[in-house]
Design a protein around this nucleic acid. Sequence first.
DNA 1: AGCTCTAGTCTCGAATTGAGACTGCGTCCA
DNA 2: TGGACGCAGTCTCAATTCGAGACTAGAGCT
Lengths: 137, 137
Amino acid sequence: MTGLSGEVDAVLDGFQRAIRVEPNFDACPVRGVLDRIGDKWSTLMVLTLALRPHRFGELKRAIPDISQRMLTQTLRDLQRDGYVARRVFPTTPPAVEYSLTDLGRSLMTPLSGLVDWAVRTRGAVEAARVAFDRENV
Amino acid sequence: MTGLSGEVDAVLDGFQRAIRVEPNFDACPVRGVLDRIGDKWSTLMVLTLALRPHRFGELKRAIPDISQRMLTQTLRDLQRDGYVARRVFPTTPPAVEYSLTDLGRSLMTPLSGLVDWAVRTRGAVEAARVAFDRENV
DNA sequence: AGCTCTAGTCTCGAATTGAGACTGCGTCCA
DNA sequence: TGGACGCAGTCTCAATTCGAGACTAGAGCT
């Protein structure tokens, strides 16, 4: 047995069944969802928008090392998947407000579990990295 | 108020504090951990290794659309971070077994929460995509 | 001698990303 | 009246990353 809780086993079973059932592995819809979440900028952006709605420029300042190009593109992708809502105020200069939808907010529960895990394990990960780099010159 | 549970709020607070404290945003250790998890292949590989240990070739067959190059590289990265253990049997032809470490297994709880969420929401995401594509010609 | 098997590495063209210049258009200040 | 500014992008080009597939070592099998 795996030593994991029953809940985890159930999810694993579901995962295994999902990829078995899906003849085209690449088209697995769970992968489609996970790939978006797994994107370098997506989680960061969802986490930032969870604090409060942001305008385009605010997001750029909140995540200083993202390029405008990727900011635009990631926002579009999140919007397309229904996680983020885009509201345009036809003023000059233009104002655009991005906010999480209910679907986007529903991601916060599993995502915060992951962030929490990351915070708890980062020490172990850092130690593992140092050990690995020491052994592999 | 955000409408989220207190637990999520607490994690968000932690996240916000973490990025505030970190002067070099790019070096935030949580991001380092999340970036690895967020990798296109990492989650898939962890999920596969959670089923049972796999040899290199088995992994390649289990995840048919990964290139050898990325398979090697992702496994190295996961090993470096201490999620995966690599065991070499000095036979010919060589045999190498990859398995999850305790640290790697500890990821299964939050990760399965995410997979579960992906399974539950994929219908809504698919609908959002169709609606978006219809509106944007 | 030649073929097979495994776990990689190497090379090269293709796709993705980053840095930053540029746009449109009203407002503010002179 | 005209010049600079702010905002939310788009466009271009260079750098980085990725995928596909050829190639390697060394023992066993025929």
